[in-house]
Amino acid sequence: MSGYLTGVLVVLAFNVMAAYAVYLPLAAGQLNLGIAGFMAIGAYAAAYLTNELGWSMWAAVPMGSAAAGLVGILIGIPVLRTHGIYLALATFALGQVIAAVFLNLDVVGAAAGYPVTDYAAPGVVFACAIGVVLLMALISRTRFALYLTAVKSDATVADLMGISVRGIQVAAFALGAALAGFGGAMYAHHYSFIEAQHFNVLLSVFTVLYVLFGGVQTVWGPLVGAAFFTLVPELLRASDQWRYALFALFIIIFMALRPQGLVTASLFRLFRRRSKGASA
């Protein structure tokens, strides 16, 4: 595999992990616009453990993920009392505050950035991304995933059916945060250097776009969205500076034709019925 291709696929792997971190709460109707902040927590926590305490990457990365998940629970409980645009604003502010804290935290290099001593090879990053996709595919086969949709679709009815709406929302938010932390921790160990400026609002917004573009109704939407946003600009490289204009045009056309995202639940049912009809 060429260095260029490996580089692109590594970016794709990180984008896929981030997309699922946004997808989990979004599947329950909660927009987290501060996902970069949770990535930063995972990245800095894991990097600190390998650098300063001499931990192995294999222990530091899960701890970074757990730290982000814990912050997700603590923040999620009060923040998820808000809805819609207010939740988006609250999480947006949260992401900014977290990045600002790391930007001024001398113990992890502050504005100068923070080199990381341990290294995760591309193969490890790929394996982690595939693991995340498989885990998400497994979760999508459970009642938990069904309840995410139920809570998003009609929280009153879900509540009357006995489902703990807040419990499901906080769990989805915290699991998303943990996943973001995991991706951030892997990022720190692959690139061997992190700086707070990387975990900015554009990273959060782009990740939300992957998910909305791919579609939030099925577990494959974020994968397709992240792949589109990562690979298509690369494929358009030959068109030089036109690539951004072409890419924007693609997005506008797709969103006009499929406002629910590229991959929807009814699309899946249609394919299933066709394949059943073909085999009958």
Binding site: T149, A150, G162, I163, A265
Partner: peptide, 15 residues
């Protein structure tokens, strides 16, 4: 829940 299948709606009812 209108974009879920009938079976999925019933599964919510079983909660």
């Amino acid at each position: 829940m209108s974009h879920l299948s009938v079976l999925e709606n019933l599964l919510v009812g079983q909660h």
